[in-house]
Design a protein around this nucleic acid. Structure first.
Lengths: 335, 335
DNA sequence: CTGAAAGCGCTAACAA
DNA sequence: TTGTTAGCGCTTTCAG
């Protein structure tokens, strides 16, 4: 490694041709004499020559072929399934568009030196609004995922969390439940807030009361779900159904239920949010709300790319619809 | 966005100075007249000029300041905690070294076009050995994480999985267990194989028999753990202790146990592998083997960087030691 | 303190 | 089919 950077000129000299020719074989221009191609390729591998991508880009006039993916340090947003699915989508999108994906794990304080990213995708914004602002102000193509941004001129693509949780709660209501509790997600998160809002909206619309002891502020963690479940079950008048703002939490509640001999869904209905495949394999299949995470990631790349390349001039605002996935963890109330 | 790429020349013209001077203020060279600095800076922000990083790099002769992180498409390796911790470490390492982190999610078939990565970190190798080979052959600085590579001249940094599972099994043995079962990880994975090996080694060394019905080949998923647990519990002579090759699986086994009224650790001891913080919050704190994932990621970046910069000439082989974390999920056998 | 000019390593017309 | 000659946008001597 670290050979005294041999360049195209060296190769040309060694092969006894011009650098142009070397460049041609590098770029697989077909009009080069077979024999010369071989000679050049020989020289290239002999000298272990690797073209300098920086120079190539400059010469080709390529502006930027990388998008940055910015994720906040390590709050709840990075809870496994959500982030992983998103990343898969983004990764796939980049692969398709032949874009490099640059990863920025940040605590929100640094100014986010984006070395050669031509666009930025923010995985939600929690504490890093300033970063988004700066980037936007600098004219950097930006897109925020899963956060409907109102006070900033920036594109976003999000899932309709209000609608999703509304669907979840309404499903419970339609099943006949009257005593419905919820564990919320992290209320620092817009998703957390919105999912709670949709939940409330559904209950209100169906004239169902939601006392405060039926609401537990969680943070997407199994730990908080466990606390919630324990509290709910110890209530004088426990709920017959629980909406958890994430599948992870829902699964934990299923666990707590079974540990306490409470049958799912006979004694209690539980519905989650995410469509985490793990929900398929618990003791009961988890009924849940599916959000198109992969698609969202893929779309995000596409949109940013269009902004980068100027095909898209204005702001893009997309809100994707979630789906209700019915499995076995919900039933009509027995009582 | 997408203004017709204004360049340093435009700024120079507008500010009525030479491009050299503009370059100077860009690079904060102190010997520039205050007044001129202001004028230039004015022009810069007026025109929303952003220097082309590609050109800067070329001119400065900077080779590569990015490392690529390659992760296989989507096998078990990407099970949440493992990958997330690793990535945190790598992200942190890059931040420290002011390196960009380029993300490659690959299915192992593509030739891995590494646009401007100066080094590559492979998150294990499962189906992408050819990619590693190619990269190594091309003289690209490479490092493989968590896979002790024998048949290839490549650096690696790994955790001693054999030792870890040996510790786990021995701990169980020392507690007095004789009937010890295990759910393995994905046996396509070296970690899966090694953890099984360590387990067997410990039992053998202590002259404890391990019948085949005590071994369930899992894949790190909760699903497979559930299957395993159900099978173990239905055995005529069920085990008194179980070693799971991941905390996720261990936690699922705890769940299955409790669902069946089997008390942990009174009736059954369960030990995991990972030190996933989620293990802290279940019904019982999970005893487990901690692997220094974050450290490993950080180290990986450091090592690759040293190879990239030529400070490190030879191959680097590091094997990190795991730790036993004792919590509450294991006890002496009651029977 | 400022500007002219020579590259960085490579690509892309344009000739030959 | 191959080579000559300009640049790409910026940094960096080296004069002035």
């Amino acid at each position: 490694m670290v050979e005294k950077k041999i360049s195209i000129t060296d190769v040309a000299r060694k092969a006894g041709v011009s650098i142009t020719t070397v460049s041609r074989v590098l770029n697989k221009v077909p009009t080069v004499n077979k024999e010369i191609v071989q000679r050049v390729e020989g020289a290239i591998s002999d000298m272990k020559f690797k073209p300098n991508p920086t120079a190539q880009r400059l010469a080709k006039g390529i502006q930027n072929t990388a998008v940055g993916f910015v994720i906040p340090g390590y709050p709840g947003i990075f809870h496994s399934f959500y982030a992983v699915e998103l990343m898969r989508g983004i990764g796939h999108g980049c692969e398709t568009l032949r874009l490099d994906l640059i990863f920025h794990i940040t605590d929100g304080s640094n100014p986010l030196r984006s070395n050669f990213a031509g666009g930025l995708i923010f995985a939600d914004i929690i504490e890093n609004l300033p970063q988004v602002q700066t980037a936007v102000a600098e004219g950097m193509p930006c897109l925020v995922i899963n956060h409907i941004v109102k006070d900033l001129q920036v594109s976003y693509i999000a899932v309709d969390n209000v609608k999703g949780s509304f669907m979840a709660a309404e499903y419970l209501v339609n099943l006949g439940h009257k005593r419905i509790a919820t564990v919320t997600g992290n209320m620092q998160t817009q998703a957390g807030i919105d999912r709670f809002e949709g939940f409330q909206k559904a209950l209100k619309q169906h004239n169902i009361d939601c006392p405060t002891e039926y609401v537990h502020k969680g943070d997407y963690s199994r730990r908080s779900a466990r606390q919630a479940a324990e509290r709910f079950f110890s209530l004088e008048n426990p709920p017959t159904a629980i909406f958890a703002a994430s599948d992870d939490m829902a699964m934990e509640i299923v666990s707590v239920s079974m540990e306490n001999g409470i049958k799912v869904p006979e004694d209690i209905s539980i519905i989650g949010f995410d469509d985490n495949p793990a929900g398929l394999f618990g003791p009961v299949g988890l009924t849940t709300i599916k959000q198109p995470l992969f698609t969202m990631g893929e779309e995000a790349v596409r949109v940013v790319y269009e902004i980068m390349t100027g095909k898209q001039k204005g702001l893009v605002h997309k809100v994707l619809a979630p789906d209700l996935i019915v499995r076995e963890s919900c039933a009509q109330p027995s009582s």
